[in-house]
Design a protein around this nucleic acid. Structure first.
Ligand SMILES: [Mn+2]
Ligand SMILES: [Mn+2]
Ligand SMILES: [Zn+2]
Ligand SMILES: [Zn+2]
Lengths: 157, 157
DNA sequence: GTTGTTCTTGCGAGACATTGCAATAACAAG
DNA sequence: CTTGTTATTGCAATGTCTCGCAAGAACAAC
């Protein structure tokens, strides 16, 4: 585990990572629009996770004309470019992981909703077992481990 | 793994399992209604997994007056009673696991959508590690392992 | 700067799921 | 069977996300 996802101040490395997003789009023949600029701006100020709806909300706070479908479509594009990666929380809502530097699984407390990241190292044994016995290749970014953290009681059976 | 989820014929044991659902409801002061009877009937003919929307669909096929919210609310009740358990597929949609005899995790191919069950035994090492290092208690029913089965190519990076 | 190509956006509709509220019906008690 | 309690339903509104389509804008080429 690498600790709960917080809201640390933006590091220079992270700022740099977003800087070439425009370039990355153009290299693929995609376009740089005001809508995308705003979305990238908001994402650059986000660390850890954000839901689709939250992102729409934060964009709308800066530009009341923000359209939901545009935001979701932009997220699709950014996911293809590797700037975000999404999965679905235990309530089924989309959760975007911003700037996933290394592929990792998610551990989530069903009690308080806290989330942690889980590295390949921690999942190695399970992944190797699945691959050896079933030829199944685990995609760590699509692994979600639900459970309860020390402070949260599991509901009575 | 215990193999892909199919549609085997209903076994006597399974039929019996549903038989006391009415009893189970009454013991809790809950009521036996035509709507619930129909939903239980459809579930009893289902093996493996079914999405919420699919269940609504199949109920509506038998009774055109079926209301979606009633079906979803009944599923909530049945989940509390242990007759079904739900998680969310990789598209975020609800997936109900019918009559979960033992708590188990799900393994899903992101290519073809096939799903398998994963037992405690297979997840033991990971669960023990999380508990020992973080005091985190894994809830196996809320574990979802995404990846690719032997026949399905992972998309190019 | 003008023009043309085609990627994007806005907008409306729709699928899936949840929720509040008032009307209804199940059930126990008499 | 009648009555009272309250769980349940139907319905409509809401939230989240997706999709098709036509109008609009970005970009490259001239
Ligand atoms: Mn759900
Ligand atoms: Mn999704
Ligand atoms: Zn917790
Ligand atoms: Zn597959």
């Amino acid at each position: 585990m690498t600790g709960p996802t917080g809201s640390e101040p933006r590091s220079p490395a992270v700022q740099v990572a977003w800087a070439d997003a425009r370039e990355a789009l153009r290299e693929r023949g995609l376009r740089w629009t005001p809508q995308r600029r705003l979305i990238l701006e908001v994402l650059a100020e986000t660390s850890g996770h954000i839901t689709g709806a939250e992102l729409v909300e934060r964009c709308r706070a800066r530009d009341g004309a923000t359209i939901g479908s545009t935001v979701y479509r932009t997220l699709d594009v950014l996911e293809e470019l590797g700037y975000v990666r999404h999965s679905h929380g235990s309530d089924g809502r989309e959760e975007y992981h911003v700037l996933p530097l290394a592929e990792h699984a998610h551990v989530r407390c069903l009690g308080c909703g806290a989330a942690w990241d889980l590295s390949w190292e921690d999942a190695r044994e399970l992944a190797e077992r699945l691959e050896a016995r079933n030829g199944f290749k685990v995609a760590l970014g699509h692994v979600m481990i639900g459970g309860y953290c020390p402070g949260c009681e599991p509901a009575a059976p």
